[in-house]
Design a protein around this nucleic acid. Structure first.
Lengths: 222, 222
DNA sequence: GTTAATACTTAAGTTAGTTTCACTTTGGTA
DNA sequence: TACCAAAGTGAAACTAACTTAAGTATTAAC
């Protein structure tokens, strides 16, 4: 099954839309994600359905077949391994890697990915805390919770983000909130739901509810 | 100047044809190298000439403009850096890397190449002994000679190959002739111009004239 | 110098992926 | 239960890169 880059991007879009939504992906949802027209999507989805990568019913939306899902997970694996490489080996910041990984993930060589994985030491999660599927396609579900679900004095470790936009990641960098950082929750201010965080270096930062909802954490020693 | 992968491949083909031939590249030479029809080449070369990347005169062949050459050298640089990475970091053999590097070289991110170069320690030549252009596009010409131009008892170091085909590289692997290997020339057999080589591990191999012409070497301590 | 073979270009048509625009289906609201 | 807005589809047309087929230049041969 030799797919074009475009076809691969459609599969990946389907994967992301269906795994957070769970229902079939609507034509518009796909066109929005890929920044293309709805008509292009109709067209392409039909072709992917012909190849048995997608299950599609007119006017009802589409989702990945088993075959399509396997390919999509492979792409996610490649993307996240390259992101890890870029940050861990080449010294990119976590907010700089998405676009480059987007290109690297389309390089076709199973051998390359196996060797890269080994070279990187079989990492379990990418620089944004998202899990890296293993060679068999298994994804280790990390039981992470939003920071906003914890209480004052809880000690937490930053494990991931649910918003990977460049803007948000740069904001976190500037506040010293990096992956793996240990933080202790301070007081919450009820009037706007903002919250104090105490960092390891004794500094204190105040984050908005939006930020607290986008940070995925685990309790220290759990 | 955002070029398609295809356009980049044409520039690279032009670069290779013109630097070993030196004259303008003929339409057929290009079509042979890219395994495409002469008509496609005429078409594309015209378009590249419109973009001022190629100097083209109908029926007279084409060569790279200054701008085109800069881009082509950049591609060669990327290709060779990736080949070095694949062999040195990921553990590929030198006969396995060409095709993968062919894909990786089209990834667009100047930042990526700068950081990769640094990560690799600014290597000067790729796994086949070809020089890697630096970030400014300068190519360090290695003054290498064919093994066939040396005489009995000369002690040589294998520095590169002028034939990078998978078949040839695999043959060299099997004979224990790796880049950097030290060899001492033995007797030459006049009837078919084959020649004995003494390896460091005391083994002896006999190579054909064709092989002796394809091995690039330097004298020990020169 | 004419001719034949080779090299090259042009023209027309193909394919993948796109767009725009007009039409159809769906589903919520009254 | 009928209607309308939103969502989705189909058709036609565009672009990049390709092909084949046919025609034009160049070169080599005599």
């Amino acid at each position: 099954m030799n797919l074009s880059e475009t076809e691969e991007n459609y599969l990946k879009a389907l994967y992301y839309i269906c795994t957070d939504g769970d229902a079939a992906a609507s034509t518009n949802a796909i066109s929005a994600r890929l920044e293309t027209s709805a008509a292009s999507v109709s067209d392409m989805i039909k072709r992917l359905a012909d190849k048995d990568l997608v299950i599609y019913e007119k006017y009802k939306g589409a989702f990945l077949s088993k075959k399509g899902k396997t390919i999509a997970v492979g792409l996610v694996r490649k993307h996240r391994l390259w992101e890890f490489f870029l940050v861990d080996k080449l010294g990119f910041r976590w907010d700089q890697v998405h676009e480059v990984a987007e290109q690297l993930e389309h390089v076709k060589s199973p051998e390359l990915i196996l060797k890269l994985d080994q070279f990187l030491g079989f990492p379990k999660s990418d620089p944004h805390g998202d899990p890296i599927p293993d060679a068999a396609g298994n994804i280790q579900r990390l039981a992470l919770r939003k920071l906003s679900s914890f209480s004052e004095n809880d000690e937490l470790i930053l494990m991931g983000v649910s918003d990977s936009s460049v803007e948000f990641l740069q904001y976190l960098n500037q506040q010293g909130l990096n992956l793996g950082a240990k933080v202790k929750l301070g007081s919450k201010f009820p009037f706007d739901q903002s919250q104090e965080l105490h960092l390891e270096n004794k500094l204190k930062v105040v984050i908005s509810l939006h930020v607290a909802n986008s940070l995925l954490v685990k309790k220290v020693n759990s």
